[in-house]
Amino acid sequence: MFYLIILLLVIPMGLFGQEKSKAFKTISISANYLQNINDNMFHDYWKPANGFELSAETEFYFGKVELGAQLFSINAKNIEQPDFLAVNMYIGWSWEQKLFSKFSIYSGFLLGNYYMNFDENNIDVNLKTESEFSLGLKAGLKYNIGKNLFINISGRYQIIYTYHRIHLSYISIGLGKTFVTPKWLREFLN
């Protein structure tokens, strides 16, 4: 059943996809602040995992693709647990729909590698850092404020696939700018 759902997702993406000529036409660079808003087992040990995100997004053959990095500095609540720095490098896909001339909404998913570096010196060197798969979902809106600048507001949900899954919800706000993709870069991406 799940397999069929995937197929139903994949096939229409191709059938109703954009023309190849429109792919990679523009690039939007955005910087966002991420505020962690949920409270679960993870937060019994660590304070809210707030962070900062830098991403680049461009039109794909269907929807948009995104490449980005999120940086989190996470502080422990207790002395027994270490603080840690987390970097989530991800690729994402989203579908954006313009509602009005300056206003659009979008939703999509992110697949990433969630790298953690623990501030703890008394452990095996093999356990000092850790990498784990992460899956994120996002939905939000963009408001164009002129000169290709836009405000980006979104809600995020992220799962880090550790043995005990880490579920994190965020709201984010940020600013972005859209450029015409340089010819050399567009040729490279195609």
């Binding site: 027994e80 270490p82 953690m116 356990l127 850790e130 784990e132 880090i160 550790t162 005990h164 880490i166």
Partner: peptide
Amino acid sequence: TGDPGPYYF
């Protein structure tokens, strides 16, 4: 997937 991650501590 399935590492302990920060829960190791």
